[in-house]
Nucleic acid binder design. Structure first.
Lengths: 94, 94
DNA sequence: TAAACAAGTTTATAAAATAAACCAAATATT
DNA sequence: AATATTTGGTTTATTTTATAAACTTGTTTA
């Protein structure tokens, strides 16, 4: 019997966000937006969900005078991602 | 920029169905149901979607006197699955 | 100084997933 | 022999989720 997939990660945009953050020290809203091609609204919502789940850390500050939202993956997020990949491998027969 | 994931396959239950069918000649409704743990209603709906997309073939007949729904993956379904796996690998950094 | 732009957030809408209710036929129960 | 239960589903309703549209706040630029 296949294990359930973490619903928080099994979402195209949220998975893309985490996937980006896994590879870098940190990334800001604008960068993630251009990398994913998401609308600002959708991205804002999904970042919120990941943060509330404790998968990412979000720091809202300013770069000069413009607002800047920086995201980082957390330890818990990294673990959840690793677990998600393991589970998914069974679905993908890998 | 990450490619979009086939929304038909990027669904836990539909992915599970296709994953099962990839490995076997054919499988019936009851088997898929016990393997996935899905409710009959949900399974019925998702099988329908996969069939309408041409990813699977569905044959409704009888085994003895009881109805029996047999599913098989199609060539197109196999291709879509392979493509989905390739795309997903980029998200999973593999 | 008003128009356009940047970086988001909030709210509304569309689409999905899921569950609940239902159906028809078969088998088991009293 | 009637009735209850189970099997194998489908249909419809509800909930959840994803997405987009509209709005906000402050900033440049014309």
């Amino acid at each position: 019997m296949l294990k359930p997939l973490d619903p928080l990660l099994h979402s195209e945009l949220r998975l893309a966000i985490v996937s980006i953050l896994i590879g870098v020290e940190e990334a800001d809203f604008v960068y993630i937006r251009t990398e994913t091609g998401a609308t600002a609204g959708n991205l804002s919502v999904q970042i919120d969900k990941l943060q509330k789940a404790g998968y990412i850390e979000v720091e809202k500050g300013f770069r000069g005078k413009m607002p800047r939202t920086v995201c980082r993956i957390t330890h818990s997020g990294r673990e959840a991602f690793a677990q998600y990949v393991e589970t998914l491998k069974e679905y993908l027969k890998m």
